[in-house]
Write a protein that binds this DNA or RNA. Structure first.
Lengths: 339, 339
DNA sequence: CTGAAAGCGCTTACAG
DNA sequence: CTGAAAGCGCTTACAG
């Protein structure tokens, strides 16, 4: 370990030279011999810079935080990847956290909001963060980019094109010949509202009557709730668009329990792709979203803010959402079985 | 924002007093009136301490990092929770990261290993971390606790009682009357080896002949591979213990594809519980492990090391693994269908 | 081309 | 009981 001071002493130079060798700064007008001597001592001691001292001096930590609501949700995988790659390219480290930890008074929150250890925050929350925490976020200079949610602080939000995703999913079902198509996903969360809007647009364009969204909670339970509500109603759609892969999982379970066959009785498409879609039986058709690009854009937005440059917020619509067909969809039954 | 210096100026006191007010230190022999004035200015400015300066001065950041291999694996949920709670109780913030980011030269790794920003690391890896990175880990003073893996650096590892889990899972199947029971999970990773050992012990205790583990990869694919191998063999077990819930998911898919009914043809128990076990059909019987306790113990171990106290490493066996029965198991078929 | 010095914002031992 | 000062380890403007 050791410090630059110690290296300087051992190499017989000043700390300015040591710092220059480490950082490759212009101060670098030193003889090759001096540089080599310094590098040898650095190697010998296994010197590593003290990040706290650096951050204090540079007024920048080189670390950004990503906070999401349920970190185990598989849909984040690509986003994390996109964020990580973009951050590494800029020389930043990424740390992850769970939105459930953002409680007023938590040390996690203190670290996020304190000066010095986190340069920027990428936040994805379905609304869990309470008003007091939001007030803190607003009061601090640390830039916060909201992803997948259109209520970004100071308009700083980025989202995928959820309406397009809803449209793509619905269009696929229309193309298969379905006319009784519904959408499940609740209305509280903005992306869901957008997806439902895309569903409704596709329906209208095809001369079909869109229905209100089937309001549900989130997670796998949403799928279960959706089917329960449908069964309780007099409606018998032949196809369903659900909010995400986990909802699809819950829907599969409920369909199994109710003796409803997928896709023979009911076709299903889920927004968002994830590995597990391939492991379900039947494999679940999904809409792949540009999550990696969303993550990369969020990193760029933080960089722009820190450098006082302007940046474009809003929709990340390239590449466009694309349907990944799998066996959970089929043409509607010619003579529907009653269920 | 502002600094203590600015607060001191506005409140007409010295920075020592400001610091004392903020930290509640003994220096605290100040009049109530002084304290109130300082607090008012702190409030007014929305002052937040600079963590980098603190970390530099205290030689401690108050942040620990948790690095796991596939952060979206649902089995980590409870462990993260246990870590978070224990860390908060100690006044520490927790940050998460993915083991795939621990590449030599990555800025993420630099932040982990550098002095100043991370006080300790909890690492869970199936072996992804390459030798060069391990060498770095060893060379730095930052304590690293290996969880679920018995090759901890300097013997600093903690693991759940995988052998007991294997035993519990197997015993449940034996109790149901199964005699042809197999274990799937590969042999590369130590916990799997332990689970297989527990399986073998339970079998022997029941006077049954344990079989070698069916070697597979990891993740959902493991379940698929296991069934493929069984089908290719002449063996027809009536029950199977799989390494985790994701493997169970893959096994379900493979069983469906092969026309094998669970549990009628084949009973299944998975090590590790996760929410999705309830969403599968049939719901998947699992063994719940003390993951939250494992996480809490890892935090305590870091604390002990930092405080130069001794601490106990090894197995976290309280509470013991417990079987959560679900519909994926049943007595063996009286007259097995051929498959 | 290289070194001495200031200062980032904090905590704390010390002097008064 | 309170203030002035040192120092954590770094970077960088400045002097030589």
């Amino acid at each position: 370990m050791g410090t630059q001071k110690e290296i300087a002493r051992r190499a017989g130079v000043s700390v300015s030279v040591v710092s220059a060798v480490i950082n490759g700064t212009k101060h670098t007008r030193m003889s090759d011999e001096t540089r080599a001597r310094v590098e040898a001592v650095i190697e010998e001691l296994g010197y590593v810079p003290n990040d706290a001292a650096r951050a204090l001096r540079r007024q920048r930590s080189g670390t950004i935080a990503v906070v999401v609501e349920k970190i185990e949700n598989p849909i984040y995988r690509d986003m994390f990847h996109g964020i990580y790659d973009a951050a590494e390219a800029r020389g930043w480290a990424v740390v992850l956290g769970d939105a459930r930890w953002m409680r007023s008074g938590s040390h996690f929150l203190a670290r996020l909001l304190g000066q010095g250890s986190i340069d920027g925050i990428i936040l994805r929350s379905e609304g869990l963060v309470d008003d007091e925490v939001v007030a803190h976020l607003r009061a601090r200079p640390t830039p916060v980019i909201m992803v997948e949610g259109r209520h970004g602080l100071d308009g700083r939000w980025l989202a995928i094109d959820d309406a397009a995703a809803g449209r793509v999913a619905t269009q696929h079902l229309i193309d298969l010949g379905h006319r009784q198509i519904e959408f499940a996903g609740g209305e509280r969360w903005v992306p869901t509202v957008e997806r439902h809007r895309g569903y409704a647009d596709a329906m209208r364009d095809a001369g079909l009557e869109p229905r209100d969204a089937i309001r549900t909670g989130y997670g796998s339970q949403a799928g279960t709730e959706a089917l329960t509500q449908i069964i309780a109603s007099r409606r018998r759609p032949t196809a369903l668009v659900v909010n995400n892969v986990l909802s699809g999982l819950g829907l599969y379970a409920a369909a199994h329990d109710a003796g409803i066959a997928i896709p023979d009785d009911l076709s299903v498409v889920a927004i968002h792709d994830a590995d597990i879609a391939d492991d379900l039986r039947p494999p679940l058709a999904t809409v792949r979203m540009p999550m990696a690009e969303l993550g990369a854009r969020a990193v760029e937005a933080i960089a722009a803010i820190l450098e006082d440059q302007s940046t474009r917020f809003g929709l990340v619509d390239d590449p466009a959402p694309v349907l990944l067909p799998r066996a959970s969809t089929a043409p509607p039954p010619s003579s529907p079985r009653p269920w």
